[in-house]
Simulated scan of single mutants.
Amino acid sequence: MTPSVSSDPDRTRAGIEATRAELGATVQALAARTNVRARGRDRAREIRGRARVLRDRLGGTGAVARRHPLLAVVVATTVGLVVTMRQYERRP
């Protein structure tokens, strides 16, 4: 923003107020970025929210596993094998 010379005092005051507001917003944004503790809390809150959504979406999974334990073992073993194979493939 380049300073402009104005003979109108009201226009000058308005420009100063706008600059102050912009500067205040910039300072607040910088302060928020440097507040590591608050950013960590925000991130944790976001992850907890995602976990709740996933838990709600998969709510009946535990009941199915209790009714069909063999199916649960087969699924868990398959997932474990797939994850292990992918880890093995990614090795250099």
Score class of each variant (00 low, 15 high):
16 I>V: 08
23 L>C: 07
4 S>E: 13
88 Y>P: 00
2 T>F: 09
82 V>I: 11
8 D>P: 02
66 R>M: 12
11 R>N: 08
20 R>G: 01
4 S>G: 03
11 R>P: 00
29 A>R: 15
36 V>A: 14
8 D>A: 03
76 A>I: 03
24 G>W: 04
2 T>Q: 14
7 S>Y: 07
92 P>Y: 08
72 A>M: 02
15 G>L: 02
6 S>V: 05
54 L>P: 00
25 A>N: 06
84 T>K: 13
73 V>T: 09
36 V>Q: 06
11 R>T: 11
20 R>E: 05
4 S>M: 11
27 V>T: 09
70 L>R: 14
63 A>N: 11
34 T>M: 13
8 D>F: 06
17 E>M: 11
55 R>D: 08
86 R>C: 08
68 H>L: 11
75 V>P: 01
47 I>A: 15
91 R>T: 09
77 T>W: 06
69 P>N: 05
83 V>C: 10
55 R>M: 10
26 T>V: 12
40 G>N: 07
78 T>H: 11
66 R>E: 10
57 R>T: 01
23 L>K: 10
56 D>N: 14
51 A>Y: 12
64 V>I: 15
80 G>C: 05
65 A>G: 01
85 M>I: 08
18 A>Q: 10
10 D>S: 03
5 V>D: 13
74 V>W: 09
34 T>L: 13
67 R>Y: 05
34 T>A: 13
38 A>E: 07
42 D>C: 01
23 L>D: 01
50 R>W: 02
24 G>N: 05
82 V>D: 07
31 A>P: 04
30 L>G: 07
89 E>K: 13
89 E>C: 10
64 V>D: 05
38 A>F: 01
10 D>Q: 09
17 E>R: 15
19 T>S: 14
43 R>W: 09
77 T>L: 15
31 A>V: 03
36 V>R: 13
51 A>F: 13
73 V>S: 12
56 D>Q: 14
29 A>Q: 07
4 S>Y: 07
45 R>T: 06
76 A>Y: 02
30 L>E: 04
4 S>R: 14
32 A>W: 01
49 G>T: 03
67 R>F: 05
78 T>A: 15
35 N>Q: 00
66 R>Q: 15
59 G>I: 09
31 A>K: 11
37 R>H: 12
1 M>N: 08
88 Y>M: 12
75 V>L: 14
37 R>M: 12
21 A>L: 07
27 V>S: 10
80 G>S: 12
62 G>S: 09
48 R>A: 13
63 A>W: 11
